[in-house]
Design a protein around this nucleic acid. Structure first.
Lengths: 202, 202
DNA sequence: CTCATACTAGACTGACTGGTCTATTTTTAA
DNA sequence: TTAAAAATAGACCAGTCAGTCTAGTATGAG
């Protein structure tokens, strides 16, 4: 029987520290000290820091995707309202980490995608799954008549994901969720508009 | 007379390496080896790596702001066309660095704003100057009747900056400028619209 | 019980980190 | 001409890094 508890503890601690300080700035020794695991165990479960980092990404992606599915596929709620709840959850998370962590995948994408193709591929897959969830929600909104069908859902999803990630970045440097609120405001006012409406008219 | 050539060479090399690998992953020795400057000179000009990093940011911000002013305040060109040129320049730069570097300020904002308030402040000031240039251009567009005056220019500028930074991040992880193109497409189709137009109607 | 495997434990290694130190050369000003 | 200041030069330091190594303990199968 495999003891996965230690492995999970390492990954959990790693996600926390890497989220706070980034991948390069997080030493293995710091992870070990934080969760009280000896080095021998670490290299029993992971062959290298890179493999560990990938495991952290995988674990985070799985948990995040589950949360995303729950929020964006909640059929009891109108599609655009699900999106609003998703944004609200993001803002809350930003508050709860004192505007310091932001989005682990976004952080690592910025830090590592120019450094290692293995990491870049892993992170890109996460982004694409994420985008795919958005596409589903947006198509639902179009079918429900909440959203103009004139805009292709996949382009829209890419637009939203980019904007949201950028807003998180700005929120980090500003130490305020205002950029996230501004992004959401204009997004719903100008982009996620019902069919045949006259938006933005002066 | 101060010999600023060596200092500038250090900053230039630093900007390049930090842009490629990030701040933490760029060692001082690597910078020195790349530009052939001995360590004694480095610590003659900079008291620490942090001060060096801030100098790199300052230098980059000044150069970037100058370029921004040239593009966005070119009165021979209609305001929204200036913005399109700015986006085109960004895409070209993304190509020219093989989708690896992206935006130095965005990279460092992601990497360092949770790590050091000094860095965070410096980077935030750059973002704000940048945003201010956008506000000017957007107000110009509103005055020229190219853009609905219903949307506050500062909220719009924040929206654009966030979206653009996020699109750059996505472009890095995807190794493709498509996210930047998608952002621009929807931005001009839905957000930067003339007064009283019926956009997005199905 | 016995033996192999899973796991824990942490001292240790070589490479590299940011930073210090002393010495030397070049430049400037008087 | 000379002395101070600016700048170059790189050996060196303590600390940290990812990763290795050996040893010991727990566990489960037969």
């Amino acid at each position: 029987m495999k003891n996965t508890a230690t492995r999970e503890k390492l990954i959990e601690t790693g996600a926390e520290l890497i989220g706070q300080h980034g991948y390069n700035a997080t030493g293995i020794n710091a992870v070990l000290k934080t969760c009280g695991v000896p080095k021998g165990s670490f290299y029993h479960y992971f062959s290298s820091k890179e493999e560990f980092g990938l495991a952290v990404i995988d674990q985070f992606a799985a948990a995040y995707d589950a949360q995303l599915a729950e929020l964006l596929e909640d059929t009891m709620t109108p599609p655009l309202e699900r999106l609003r709840r998703y944004f609200a959850a993001g803002r809350e998370h930003m508050h709860s980490c004192n505007h310091a962590t932001g989005c682990l995948i976004g952080n690592l994408g910025q830090e590592l995608s120019g450094q290692s193709d293995t990491f870049r591929d892993a992170l890109d897959r996460v982004f694409q799954r994420w985008e795919h969830r958005l596409v589903g929600c947006l198509k639902g909104a179009q079918e429900a008549g909440e959203l103009s069908a004139a805009l292709p859902a996949d382009t829209l999803a890419s637009f939203i994901l980019s904007g949201w990630e950028g807003a998180i970045l700005r929120a980090k440097t500003l130490k305020s969720v205002v950029p996230m609120e501004q992004f959401e405001a204009i997004l719903f006012q100008q982009v996620l508009v019902p069919p045949e409406s006259n938006v933005g008219s002066a």
